[in-house]
Structures are given as C-alpha cells and as structure tokens.
C-alpha cells in the first residue's frame, strides 16, 4: 500500500472540532484513486495531511509503510500537488512560471530541461509558453496549473478538482492526460464533485462525509455490491419536476435532474407500464429510457443524503 492512514484524526479550534474522525484509508500504488465527499466533508483536510501541509491530531499516516513525518522531504520530492486554486503567477508567462517552480524544486541542467519539456508536453502547452498566464483561457490556466504539478515528474500526483470551470474539450483533454499519466505508473489521488468524471476516470474510490470514510473500494466492486438497479427516463425538455407530480406514488422515485427521473426498482417493466400513459403525452418527449446499475452519483447521494451542505469544514 502506498498511502495508508490508521485511525487518523484531525481537530481544529477550541473547543476542539473534529474534522477527521478515525479515518482509515488505503491508496494502492499505481491506482487512480477518487476521493469524494460533499462540501465540508473533510477532503481538503485529508489531502493537506497526506501532502504534509497540515499536521494530524492523532493516528498514523504511512507512506510505503513509513510514517509520513519521518520521510516528508522524500515524499515531497516525489509528489506533485495540483491545488483547486490556480496556484501560479498570472503576471508571468507560462514559461516564466515553469522556470520559477523548476528553480524552486531545485532542478538543474538537463534534468530541468527534461522535466519542463515533460510537463509542457503532457499538458500540450507548447504553443502558449510565451503568453502571460493572466491572458490564458480558464482551460489553459488549469493546464498550466497541472503542468507545474508535474515539474518534478512525480510518482504520486494529488489533483484537487482540476476540471472546475472549464469547457468540455479541455475537460476531456485533462482527463485523458490523467489517464495517460496513470498508465505511465503515476499514482493519482483525485477529488472532484463531478461523479460521472470520477466514475469514468478512477479505478478506486473512497467516499468521505463528516470526517469519516463511509466506503472505499474498487469502483466496479462498489457499484456491484452497493449500487442498486435503477430505471432512468430522460426527457428532451425540462419536464422531470412537472411529471413527477402527475405520476402515481412510487417508492424510490427521484428527480435526478430537470431532464431525468430515476426509479430504484428490480422490475422496470412494471414501472414503465404504470406510467406509460403519462409518458406518451406529446409534451413529454422521452429521449431515452435506460435500466441498469445505479450510478456513482446515486450511490454517493444515498450514502451522504441529498441535503445541501453549507459548512465547509476545511
């Protein structure tokens, strides 16, 4: 196991407020690990502890079986961190940013050139190096943010919501790059609020809420064992809310989004039969009906509840 936490606790303030409570997490080497949780669940605190930024209150953090505190310098040297914020200098060009962080990392000579090339190539920034970061689009800024995290050719890469606020093309490019890095052997620890993204990208996932790990496993295993079968009805118009008020009361009927209704059921034909009259109304144009294993998002909501979280207990 690359990263392992044992009964990890973190408390802030006086009186102490527990942000992480008996967290036991296992991140295997070479995995593409998704860390999910609602706002204030403790994700950022957990990442901060794993990267050695924040000290823990109690418990253990082991890296390759060694206490993190004992090998923090080595861990930092082989770890890349891509924070959610765009941690770069907008006034500087992309090249100046990369040069500066390479210098800070102590890279010199051929190694420096090689690592900068690697970061630039991986994020396809070749044609944008001489532009100031402040003149970049949101997507380019994200790519530069990732490039800086890759400068030390890390064995472990922490990515904190790296696809926030970008267009689908850039998002797709970034996700492909992450997959490619993982294929090269880089262990990725990834947080995101985009469940479909995590479901498609990660091979292992942990869901954290209120400072506690609710579940962790390989994603396929999780969905197979924890996920239930559901019927998804997708409308071309935003009719889901309106229609649900007209339908007979079904258990586990939920509005997934304004276009989509989901019904947790093991017998989809009965459900379709019961609502077919309403569905055939001309204003309810059905785009598709699907049946199968519950999505990661549904599993996430079923574990963490659907209430909004206002407190971000970083």
């Amino acid at each position: 196991m690359l990263y392992q936490t044992i009964d990890l606790c973190k408390e802030y303030g006086k009186p102490p407020l527990a942000v992480l409570n008996q967290v036991n997490l296992n991140i295997p080497k070479g995995s593409l690990f998704g860390l999910l949780g609602p706002n204030g669940a403790g994700k950022t605190t957990l990442l901060s502890i794993l990267t050695g930024i924040t000290p823990k209150t109690s418990g253990q953090v082991l890296v390759n079986g060694v206490e993190l505190e004992a090998c923090i310098e080595e861990v930092r040297a082989t770890t890349g961190v891509v924070p959610q914020d765009l941690a770069l200098y907008p006034m500087l060009t992309a090249q100046d940013n990369l040069n500066f962080f390479a210098d800070v990392l102590g890279l010199k000579g051929a190694k420096r050139t090689q690592n900068i090339d690697y970061a630039v190539t991986t994020t396809a920034l070749n044609h944008h190096l001489n532009k100031k970061a402040q003149d970049f689009s949101g997507g380019l800024k994200r790519r530069l943010n990732i490039a800086i995290g890759l400068l030390n050719q890390p064995a472990v890469l922490f990515l904190d919501e790296p696809t926030v606020g970008i267009d689908p093309q850039t998002r797709r490019f970034i996700l492909e790059s992450i997959k490619s890095l993982n294929r090269e052997g880089v262990t990725i620890i990834y947080t995101s609020h985009y469940m479909d993204e995590v479901q498609n990208l990660c091979n292992r996932v942990a869901i954290i809420d209120r400072g506690t790990i609710l579940i962790q496993d390989e994603i396929n295993q999780l969905l197979r064992h924890q996920g239930k079968n559901e019927l998804r009805i997708h409308f071309s118009a935003q009719n889901a809310e309106k229609l649900v008020r007209q339908l007979p009361a079904f258990p586990h009927l939920t509005v997934a989004d304004s276009h989509t209704l989901t019904v947790e059921t093991s017998n989809p034909f009965t459900v379709i039969q019961a609502i077919s009259e309403k569905l055939s109304a001309p204003e309810n144009e059905v785009e598709y009906i699907a049946y199968g294993q519950q999505s990661l998002e549904a599993l996430f909501l079923s574990l963490t509840g659907s209430d909004t979280r206002d407190n971000d207990a970083r």
């Binding site: 914020d85 941690a87 800070v104 800086i148």
Partner: peptide, 16 residues
C-alpha cells in the same frame, strides 16, 4: 493574492 491563489501553499509543498 499569492496566499489566496494557493501559490504560497504550493511553495510549501515544494519544501520552501
């Protein structure tokens, strides 16, 4: 601004 943008944090992770 550097603090808010996370660059100071990044520097810390880079052992500064």
């Amino acid at each position: 601004i550097e603090k808010q943008q996370g660059t100071l944090l990044r520097l810390r992770v880079m052992n500064i």
